[in-house]
Design a binder for these strands. Structure first.
Lengths: 180, 180
DNA sequence: ACTCCTTTGTACCGATCGGTACAACGAGGC
DNA sequence: GCCTCGTTGTACCGATCGGTACAAAGGAGT
């Protein structure tokens, strides 16, 4: 049943590049190598079903790489550093886009509003919790700013076609978050 | 010739809400009240022509409200504060989205890559220039961070449906930018 | 009133959209 | 060999896409 996982990964890339509306069935069949028959067999609900699967996959990454460490690691500083490292890896050091952000900005937003809001609040709150645990002041404000800066950096990296923006921002955030 | 300006403003809102791909001709005719005949008379090049006009309008706002003050105002601090205030007004305190950002994230990017990159670099560089003029260290880094935080804040405000995020970020930025 | 030219509505174009129907296919059990 | 059933390619659906053609309408100048 790994074929489905492969398909989801490929579809995610298509969504990332073209957006939800722009990702036509023909683009998806081309990228996955799967015909419509297989596609609708794997995802009976069509495009929306595919998007759900993709978002579920992202939730999985987030829970594993961000949420769990931030909540469970007894060493809060290490957890924050690890979160930043995982984020850098996931977004390919700024060469990859945040699909949730892309969905949030186009007409797709209404369709997945709950999931989108949940993703960002979970991130912010988990980070704020870790900051509070290691005794940093203004945990909420700093966490919110970090999440928003990560998203802004991804956007700017993409807009300028300059991934270095993302790297610089992550370094700055590590210093800002950990400073007493 | 103000009709064209009205049409451009209406079309901009459609693009903001639906994205470039999502903004169908029928959505545009509905919002503008103009039939296809008028639309293609005003914008012979079709949707792409409309997008160009919209982007030109944004460039106009940017040049007037951001670039010119940042470059010309002898009081650099006042210029930065004014830029922040104009930005807050333009984006309706976080209730409005940045169209350039939306274009940067979806499949439209390639079509307008130059314009998109130009918009953000101009903003960053103008801000860095003002910072340097008032003798702040790390002008480039702080300017880049401010631009990216504005975009991230707009995104997060939209994603969480909570405009307050934008207001908080602008306040934080004013303090960060002006601090010696 | 007549003309000329801009502006507009509407019918239509081929292409493509997301989605469905279904027949051909293939591997495993018997 | 045959049957079964999950899987797949393909033809097709109505709707809508962006765009074009063109004739009717409108308005200014004379």
């Amino acid at each position: 049943m790994t074929e489905r996982a492969d398909a989801v990964a490929a579809i995610a890339e298509v969504f990332r590049e073209l957006g939800f509306e722009g990702a036509s069935l023909s683009a998806i069949t081309a990228r996955t190598g799967l015909g419509k028959g297989s596609l609708y067999h794997l995802f009976p609900g069509g495009k929306e079903d595919m998007a759900e699967a993709v978002l579920a996959g992202i939730d999985g990454w987030f829970a594993r790489a961000v949420f769990a460490p931030l909540r469970d690691d007894p060493d809060g500083e290490a957890a924050i550093r690890r979160m930043l490292r995982e984020t850098d890896a996931y977004f390919r050091s700024g060469r990859r886009i945040c699909l949730i952000a892309a969905f949030a900005l186009d007409g797709t937003r209404d369709r997945f509003a709950g999931r989108i809001a949940n993703y960002f609040t979970a991130w912010r709150d988990a980070l704020a919790g870790a900051l509070r645990r290691i005794g940093r002041a203004e945990a909420d404000e700093r966490a919110e700013h970090a999440v928003l800066a990560i998203q802004g950096a991804l956007l700017l990296s993409r807009a300028l076609d300059d991934p270095a923006v993302f790297g610089r921002t992550l370094e700055r955030l590590e210093a800002d978050l950990l400073r007493r």
